[in-house]
Design a protein around this nucleic acid. Structure first.
Lengths: 201, 201
DNA sequence: GTACTAACTGGCCGACCGGTCAATTGCTTC
DNA sequence: GAAGCAATTGACCGGTCGGCCAGTTAGTAC
């Protein structure tokens, strides 16, 4: 088989470059990253980066594609193992989303950079996820398990945006007086959110 | 008095540079902005930028300071003209904050860039605002006008983060299937949020 | 008017940016 | 083992980046 004890390993090299690039892009964004620093960090020559990825811009695309693929894979998996659409499902979805972001801070920052760039990257996949989520809310509404006087997409948007912003601007609000831990905030958010989407007789 | 029909006007020059810089920084972030382009845009020479602001970094600080000062002035004004702490005040605060962000998209993006930079700039002033907001929530809770089993700071954080993210990532979720206008989203958010913070007997 | 200061200019600088290229080296195939 | 090719190297490129500086000019104080 493919003996991997060798002096050349293009796939490993690609992976090393991608990993180092993701780290730096996540930290600094596209413009601030220098190819020379990236090469040093990945322990390859600059030329090798161009050989494997063509240009800085194409490397940036490759990094985003890989990260977003991971994101969508995880989200789709969560979607598929979900059960009947009801309030309990909504709550566990929020929790799952929150924990995913907590455990993948790089993804959050990558999203943020692309948002600021006005990049509408990964639009279709995202629409698919949100569409599926909204559809579940709609079903739960029909069954009277969630209040039906709100736009289902807005229900999804509301918790997605809150979770995203919590981690995206953490450096900013972590010093707010009285602010709690991740877990404490999630708990309070869920209290308010779940109470807010509960139908009233 | 100070005749302003003159060939030299340092204050105007400073303002022209600051304005052009804010526009470019808001669009592209710090690293992507070139001093040469900025000079062209402000219709001054590059040297003049250095003369008035010292360096690119100091100019960036000046731009942020000016924008954040506007932000805090507006927020403080809103705070002072507020009345008794109750649910109606909370609702109108959310509306006011939402509309402020809608009308000042530059501020939103500036905040976003600084968050990503890990800049804890403007920490004290912000803490002050949040602290005051949380204190009002606390008072309303004591009077039984808001549910008291949630952290007051989290109540503030929740709506601030939702509003922020709505405008910050607009390019991203504006294409989500079924998403509504600014007004429609705000209405649905308020329905859920206000219902969520209402005390239950 | 003279002296002084600050605003402003144009030219220039070293550093370093992203990117190219010819040459070399290690694998694979036959 | 010869041939062919992709991986890899290091030297090198033109461009332009942020910043500096000597010199000029407009306003001000006396």
């Amino acid at each position: 088989m493919t003996q991997k004890i060798q002096t050349r390993d293009p796939e490993l090299t690609r992976a090393r470059i991608l990993d180092a690039a993701e780290t730096l892009f996540v930290e600094q964004g596209f413009s601030a990253v220098k190819l020379s620093a990236l090469a040093r960090s990945a322990e390859v020559t600059k030329s090798l980066i161009h050989h494997h990825f063509g240009s800085k811009e194409q490397l940036w695309e490759a990094v985003k594609n890989r990260a977003f693929e991971r994101y969508f894979t995880a989200q789709m998996a969560m979607l598929e193992e979900a059960g009947e659409p009801d309030a309990a499902l909504l709550r566990s979805s929020v929790e799952a989303y929150f924990h995913f972001l907590r455990d993948n801070p790089g993804v959050v920052r990558l999203f943020a950079w692309t948002h600021l760039e006005g990049d509408n990257h990964c639009g279709e996949l995202d629409n698919q996820l949100v569409g599926a989520g909204a559809e579940w809310v709609r079903q739960a509404q029909k069954r009277g398990l969630l209040r039906s006087d709100v736009n289902p997409t807005h229900v999804i948007a509301m918790f997605v945006m809150t979770c995203t912003q919590w981690f995206e601007a953490k450096c900013h609000h972590q010093h707010w007086p009285g602010i709690g831990s991740d877990a404490a905030f999630l708990e309070d958010f869920l209290k308010i959110f779940m109470e807010g989407v509960t139908p009233r007789g």
